[in-house]
C-alpha cells in the first residue's frame, strides 16, 4: 500500500497536473483559433475596444451574482456560487496541499486555517447532494440530464468526500488518503476532457458572448446591454 501511496503522491500527481495544465491551455488555444468573425458574425479584431468592454461587462455580471438569473432563481444560483467558491478556495489554500506542493516543487502560497476548508468541503458535498436531488426530481432538469452529468458531479464531489474522511481520520487513514489523492487526480485529468472543461471554457464563452453584445448587439448604443 505504501508503494501505491508513493505512486499516487509522486508520478501520478505530476502526470495529472501536467495533463490538467496542458489540457486547459490546449482548450483555450483550440477555442480562440476556432473563432471566426464571419461565421460568428462578430468583428472581434476591428472593434476591439467595444469588444473588451463587453467582455469585462459580461464577466463582471456573471462572476458576481449581479444578473437576472440570480434574481429569478436565488436558491439555485446561490447554491452554485457557494459550490464553486468552496470548490476552488478549499483545495487551493488548504495547508496540507500547500505543504505537499512545497515539499515537491518548492513553491508555496498563503493558506487558510484548517476548519475553514473543512466546512467548505461539507458545503460542496451538501450542494452536490442538492444538485443530485434536483436532477432526479425536477422535470425540466431531468429531460436534459444524461449519464455524463452524474459522472461529472461524482468526479467533482469525490475529492471532498474522501478529503473529509481522511482529514477526520475516519476509516483506515492510509487507504482514505490514497483514495483522496486519487479522486483529486481523476478530477484534474477529467477537467480538460469532460464538460468540466467549463473551468476554462466558461471564461471563453462569456467573453465571446460579451464581445458579441458589445460589438454587434448594441454595445455602441445607449447604456449597452450587460451580457
Amino acid at each position: 500500500m505504501v508503494a501505491i501511496y508513493e505512486f499516487v503522491r509522486g508520478p501520478l500527481a505530476l502526470i495529472s497536473f501536467a495533463v490538467f495544465f496542458v489540457g486547459c491551455i490546449y482548450r483555450i488555444i483550440w477555442y480562440v483559433k476556432g473563432l471566426d468573425w464571419r461565421l460568428d458574425r462578430v468583428a472581434y479584431s476591428t472593434q476591439r475596444s467595444l469588444g473588451i468592454k463587453g467582455a469585462i461587462r459580461s464577466l463582471f455580471h456573471w462572476l458576481l451574482p449581479l444578473n437576472r438569473t440570480t434574481v429569478n432563481h436565488p436558491i439555485f444560483m446561490g447554491a452554485t456560487y457557494l459550490f464553486h467558491l468552496c470548490l476552488i478556495i478549499a483545495p487551493l489554500f488548504l495547508v496540507a496541499h500547500v505543504v505537499l506542493i512545497e515539499e515537491s516543487w518548492n513553491i508555496s502560497w498563503i493558506t487558510i486555517p484548517d476548519p475553514i476548508p473543512d466546512y467548505m468541503a461539507m458545503v460542496v458535498i451538501a450542494v452536490g447532494v442538492f444538485f443530485l436531488l434536483r436532477r432526479l426530481t425536477n422535470p425540466d432538469v431531468k429531460i436534459i440530464t444524461d449519464g455524463s452529468d452524474y459522472l461529472v458531479l461524482a468526479i467533482a464531489v469525490a475529492p471532498f468526500i474522501t478529503g473529509i474522511l481522511a482529514y477526520h481520520q475516519i476509516f483506515d487513514n492510509q487507504l482514505m488518503t490514497i483514495l483522496h489523492i486519487l479522486a483529486g487526480e481523476i478530477m484534474l485529468i477529467a477537467i480538460p476532457f469532460t464538460k468540466l472543461c467549463h473551468f476554462v471554457l466558461f471564461f471563453c464563452s462569456r467573453i465571446q458572448l460579451g464581445m458579441d453584445y458589445g460589438i454587434k448587439r448594441g454595445g455602441a448604443h445607449g447604456r449597452g446591454i450587460a451580457w
Binding site: 483550440w30 477555442y31 480562440v32 483559433k33 476556432g34 473563432l35 471566426d36 461565421l39 460568428d40 439555485f76 452554485t80 436532477r135 425536477n138 425540466d140 432538469v141 436534459i144 440530464t145 444524461d146 452529468d149 464538460k195 472543461c197 467549463h198 471554457l201 466558461f202 471563453c204 464563452s205 465571446q208
Partner: peptide
C-alpha cells in the same frame, strides 16, 4: 467551430 461546439459541450444541463 469552437464557439458552437463549446456551447453544446459545456451546457451544464442546469435548466
Amino acid at each position: 467551430k469552437s464557439r458552437i461546439r463549446t456551447w453544446l459541450k459545456i451546457c451544464a444541463h442546469c435548466g
